[in-house]
Design a protein around this nucleic acid. Structure first.
Lengths: 116, 116
DNA sequence: TGTAGTGTGTATTAAACACTACACAAATGA
DNA sequence: TCATTTGTGTAGTGTTTAATACACACTACA
C-alpha cells in the first residue's frame, strides 16, 4: 500500500468512529492546506516532511515509524544513530537487502527476546 | 568521523600508493567542480546527492553503503525494500534505536552465519 | 432551495538545494 | 625561475522542494 492510500484509509477509519476527521479538520490541526493534504492522500504529491508525517501520525493515532517507513524515510533520531556506527549499519543493510522476511523477523526476535 | 573527514582520508590514502588521486583529478572523474569537492571534504557543504556519493565510492574503492550511512542517507535500493514491508522495518528500527552495538552485531551474525 | 461541509483543480511562490565559474595563493618540480 | 599543480575563497545560478491561495463542484440535510 502506498503512503497516500495508507493515510486516507487511516483517516477514514478514524472518521467512522469519531466525527472530526474530515480532510479539512485534520489539515487544520496539522497546519497545512486541505488541498495539499488531499493531493498527498492521492499520491499526486510525494510524502511530506518528517515533521508533518509525525504530526499526522499523532493526530491519526498511527505509528510514526510505520508512516516514515512507508514514505521511505528515516527519522532524524535514527539517522543520528546510524551516522555514529556507519560500518556496522552498512553491513546490516547489506544483509537486509537479500534477507527474506522470516530472517528479519528472526533478527528482531533475537533482540526483543521474542516478545513481538 | 564525519563524512568529509572520511572522504579526504580515503582519498589521501589512495593518493599515497597511486598518483592520480588529487582533489582535481577525483573531481574531474566524478564530474564535479574541485572547489565543490573541497568544501565537501571539509564539511563546509553537506554530503552530496546519492549518485555522487556512489560515484565517489567507486572512484576511491570505498564501500558505498558506509559512505551513505556516514551521510545519513538510505540508498534508493534499500528505500524501495523498506517501503515494501514498512511494519516489519518499523519494528526493527524501534529495536535498533535502543540496541547496543553487540546486539546488532549478534543480529548481523545471525544472518551472515558469523562470517563477518 | 439554499447553505454548510465535503474534497479537488489550477496557478503560484519562497526558500532550500546542489551545484558552477573563476580568481587566487601556496607548494612542487624541471 | 618559471610553469604547473595543488587546494581554496567568493559569488552566483538553475532546479527542485514544499508548500500556499483561492476558486470550484459535489453531497447532505434542514
Amino acid at each position: 500500500m502506498s503512503f497516500g492510500d495508507y493515510l486516507r484509509q487511516a483517516r477514514l477509519a478514524r472518521q467512522q468512529q469519531d466525527k472530526g476527521y474530515s480532510l479539512r479538520q485534520v489539515a487544520g490541526r496539522v497546519g497545512v492546506e486541505p488541498a495539499y493534504l488531499s493531493k498527498i492522500e492521492r499520491d499526486i504529491f510525494p510524502p511530506p516532511s518528517e515533521q508533518m508525517i509525525v504530526k499526522l501520525a499523532e493526530d491519526l493515532g498511527e505509528d510514526p515509524d510505520v508512516l516514515l517507513a512507508l514514505a521511505g524515510k528515516l527519522s532524524t533520531e535514527l539517522r543520528e544513530i546510524i551516522v555514529r556506527r556507519p560500518r556496522l549499519f552498512a553491513e546490516l543493510i547489506r544483509q537486509l537487502k537479500d534477507a527474506p522476511d522470516h530472517a528479519i523477523l528472526r533478527m528482531v526476535r533475537e533482540v526483543t527476546d521474542g516478545d513481538w
